[in-house]
């Protein structure tokens, strides 16, 4: 349980939430936005984070959107992962999500909470990186939309007081061929080693990674090498690995060498399967 005198607020509008943030900030109360809250409660219990006030955004209706809007589909930041899985509008997101934590925990973990979390896996962001999604963010200057490539660099680059309202995907991406593979060191429920997600669009493969580096990422350089069909698969993979961002993780879940070994085999498996898909 969190320690200390922490205040709790549940605004019902985006503006109220942002205003409350800056009021609390002015009072030096270290406010934090809260959706599912699983990470805040677990990291708070371990004394790793120390919020003075939490602003629960789950009552804000825009954060609960799950609907079509013109050429896009909207995922509200407060939607629990299991809700998204049950509706299964975006199968790549469903499959990626189903590998996160466990079913009961995913009743509480929200899509916004996962992609904005401190814990570095943040696998739910991979489908959004692959599909050039749009991010709706609230802040002091109102609501703004950003292409995800402009605002996600290892983590979401939010300004103080900003929070994620929605993630939008162009509908053309919802049903593309895909594979998402999560490898664990042991069993089916162990901590993740690496997750790789891949889609095929206009005969090109796109890849996004989690658990390989201390941040999730999609890399143009890596994709260019993996799509160089003039070379044999093994060579393409070798060249792609040379383009990986650094550092490659080397921790208790797996050494750097082991992660790269697993990555190499996973990429080969994915390329073989995806290049056959129409």
């Amino acid at each position: 349980m969190l320690a200390g005198n922490i205040e709790y607020y549940q605004p019902s509008t985006v503006n109220e939430a942002v205003e409350q943030f800056f009021i609390l900030k002015k009072e030096n109360k270290l406010p934090m936005y809260y959706a599912g809250g699983t990470e805040i409660l677990t990291l708070g219990r371990l004394n790793i984070i120390h919020p003075g006030a939490i602003i629960d955004i789950k009552a804000i209706k825009e954060t609960l959107s799950h609907e079509s809007y013109q050429e896009h589909f909207i995922f509200g930041a407060s939607l629990p992962l299991t809700y998204i899985e049950e509706k299964n509008i975006f199968p790549l997101l469903t499959q990626t999500s189903m590998e996160i934590a466990d079913h009961t925990a995913r009743n509480k973990i929200t899509i916004g909470g996962n992609v904005c979390g401190n814990i570095f896996y943040r696998e739910a962001v991979l489908p959004f990186l692959l599909c050039d999604s749009t991010v709706v963010v609230a802040g002091k200057e109102g609501q703004k939309t950003h292409p995800i490539q402009d605002i996600f660099n290892k983590t979401f680059q939010f300004e103080e007081g900003q929070f994620l309202i929605q993630l939008l995907i162009e509908k053309k991406y919802l049903t593309l061929p895909f594979i998402t593979i999560k490898k664990r060191q042991q069993w089916e429920t162990g901590y993740p080693l690496i997750t790789v997600a891949c889609i095929k669009i206009e005969n090109q493969l796109r890849f996004a990674f989690s658990g390989l580096c201390p941040f999730p990422f999609r890399s143009q350089k890596v994709e260019t090498e993996l799509n160089n069909t003039l070379l044999p698969k093994e060579e393409r993979i070798n060249h792609a690995i040379e383009q990986l961002p650094t550092p490659v993780l080397n921790d208790v879940e797996g050494s750097k060498e082991y992660r790269l070994f697993v990555l190499r085999n996973t990429l080969k498996e994915m390329i073989v399967e995806m290049e056959e898909k129409e």
Binding site: T42, N107, K108
Partner: peptide, 22 residues
């Protein structure tokens, strides 16, 4: 820590781990 499930309860017929819910 939300891992073991010993604290599971139902809220509106959905199951939650009550150690990671306020």
């Amino acid at each position: 820590n939300g891992d073991c499930g010993a604290c599971s309860v139902m809220v509106n017929d959905n199951v939650y781990k009550s150690c990671i819910m306020l």
